[in-house]
C-alpha cells in the first residue's frame, strides 16, 4: 500500500515519461512548395475578413471626417440640426436611441430570462424541440415585417387603450408616464424592438443555462430545495455572467435596429421627455434622410458621423458581450446579426 506522498511523487514522473515518448521529430517536408503555397492561399481567406473590417472602419471615418473636423467633440451634445445653416449635433438622436433601447431592454429582459428558464428547465422533453424552434423562428422574422405589424396592430392598441390607461393611472403621479396618446413614439418602437431582441437574449441565456454542471443541481436537490429554488436561486445565479453577456448582445442589436423603429418612433428630432413622446433614433434618421443628405458634403458627413457613433457603440458592446460569453461557454457562442 503506497502512502499518498509516494503517489504524488509518482505522478510527475509518469507524465514525464509520456512526454518523452510522444515527442516526435519534425516530419520531412515531402510536399514542399505546393503545401506552403496552399497555406498562403488559405491565409488570404483570413485576410479578406480583415480587409472587409478595414473597409467598414475606413469608409465611416473618412466619410465622417469633414464633420469630425468641423464640430469636434461638441457634436455629441449639440442639439442643433439645421442643414440650411450647416449646423449639426447628435444629441437628440443619441437620446432617442437610448430611450428606445432602454424601453426595449426593460420590457425584454424579464420576458427573455423567464423564457430561457422555460426552454432549459420547465418545458417537458417532448415539447422542448418545438418551443426552441418557435423561439428561433421568431428571430428570423424581418425587421420590416415587425414594423408593418407595429403600425397595423401595436400603434392602435397603444393609442386607444394602453397609453390613455397609463396616463390615467401612473401618469397621475409621475409625469414620466404622461403624454398625448399618439400611438407612435419611443414606447411603441421600444416595445417592438424589445420583442425583436427577446429570441437573441433568450437563446443565449438558455445556452449558458445548459452549461450548468448537473452536480450543482443534484446537490441543491439533495439539500431539499424545490425545483423553483434550484432553478431560480442556484442555476440563475451561476449563469449571471451569461445573462449579462446576452443582455449586452441584446443591447448591441437593439441600438442598430432600423426599419421597425423608423416606422414607429415618430421621427421628430425633439428630445423625448416622457415615455409617450415621439423621437428620432440614429438608425432611423440615417435610413430616412441619408439620400437627401448626400447633396451637401457636410450634411452627409454629419450623418455618417452618427453612423460612426453607432458603429463604435456596437463594436464596443459586442466585444464585451462576446468576451463574457466566451469565458463562460468556451468558444460556442450564438452570433449576433445586425437587424435590418
Amino acid at each position: 500500500m503506497e502512502t499518498p506522498e509516494t503517489v504524488r511523487r509518482d505522478i510527475p514522473k509518469a507524465t514525464e515519461q509520456a512526454g518523452d515518448r510522444t515527442e516526435v521529430r519534425e516530419a520531412p517536408d515531402l510536399a514542399g512548395r505546393s503545401e506552403r503555397l496552399f497555406g498562403w492561399i488559405l491565409k488570404g481567406g483570413g485576410l479578406s475578413i480583415l480587409v472587409l473590417f478595414g473597409v467598414v472602419i475606413l469608409v465611416c471615418v473618412v466619410a465622417a471626417w469633414p464633420s469630425i473636423h468641423r464640430f469636434g467633440i461638441s457634436f455629441l451634445w449639440s442639439s442643433a440640426w439645421n442643414p440650411n445653416r450647416k449646423l449639426f449635433g447628435a444629441f437628440p438622436y443619441i437620446v432617442g436611441t437610448l430611450w428606445v433601447t432602454g424601453i426595449a431592454l426593460v420590457t425584454s429582459i424579464p420576458v427573455a430570462i423567464f423564457s430561457a428558464l422555460f426552454l432549459s428547465d420547465y418545458a417537458p422533453s417532448w415539447l422542448s424541440g418545438i418551443v426552441s424552434t418557435l423561439m428561433e423562428m421568431l428571430a428570423g422574422i424581418p425587421s420590416i415585417v415587425f414594423g408593418a405589424f407595429g403600425i397595423t396592430f401595436m400603434v392602435p392598441l397603444l393609442r386607444d387603450h394602453f397609453e390613455p390607461f397609463l396616463a390615467n393611472t401612473l401618469g397621475k403621479h409621475w409625469d414620466f408616464f404622461n403624454g398625448d396618446p399618439l400611438g407612435y413614439g419611443v414606447l411603441a418602437a421600444g416595445i417592438v424592438v424589445g420583442f425583436m431582441i427577446v429570441p437573441l437574449v433568450a437563446t443565449v441565456t438558455r445556452d449558458s443555462l445548459l452549461m450548468v454542471p448537473p452536480e450543482m443541481v443534484e446537490a441543491s436537490y439533495a439539500l431539499g430545495a424545490t425545483k423553483a429554488e434550484t432553478v431560480f436561486f442556484i442555476k440563475l445565479r451561476e449563469v449571471m455572467p451569461g445573462i449579462v453577456g446576452s443582455v449586452i448582445l441584446g443591447f448591441g442589436r437593439a441600438v442598430g435596429e432600423t426599419m421597425a423603429v423608423l416606422l414607429l418612433v415618430g421621427n421628430q428630432p425633439s428630445i423625448p421627455q416622457t415615455i409617450q413622446d415621439v423621437g428620432y433614433t440614429i438608425s432611423s434618421l440615417l435610413a430616412n434622410t441619408f439620400t437627401y443628405a448626400v447633396i451637401d458634403p457636410l450634411y452627409a458627413a454629419a450623418e455618417v458621423e452618427l453612423g460612426l457613433i453607432l458603429l463604435v457603440i456596437t463594436l464596443a458592446v459586442n466585444t464585451l458581450g462576446r468576451e463574457l460569453l466566451l469565458r463562460l461557454m468556451g468558444g460556442r457562442l450564438a452570433g449576433s446579426v445586425g437587424g435590418g
Binding site: 467598414v56 442598430g256 432600423t258 435610413a287 453612423g307 463594436l315 462576446r322 446579426v337 445586425g338
Partner: peptide, 15 residues
C-alpha cells in the same frame, strides 16, 4: 468576423 456580424444595417448601407 464576429464583430462584423453585429454591425448595424444602416452602417452597412453607408459603407
Amino acid at each position: 468576423s464576429d464583430l462584423l456580424l453585429g454591425v448595424p444595417s444602416v452602417v452597412w448601407g453607408i459603407v
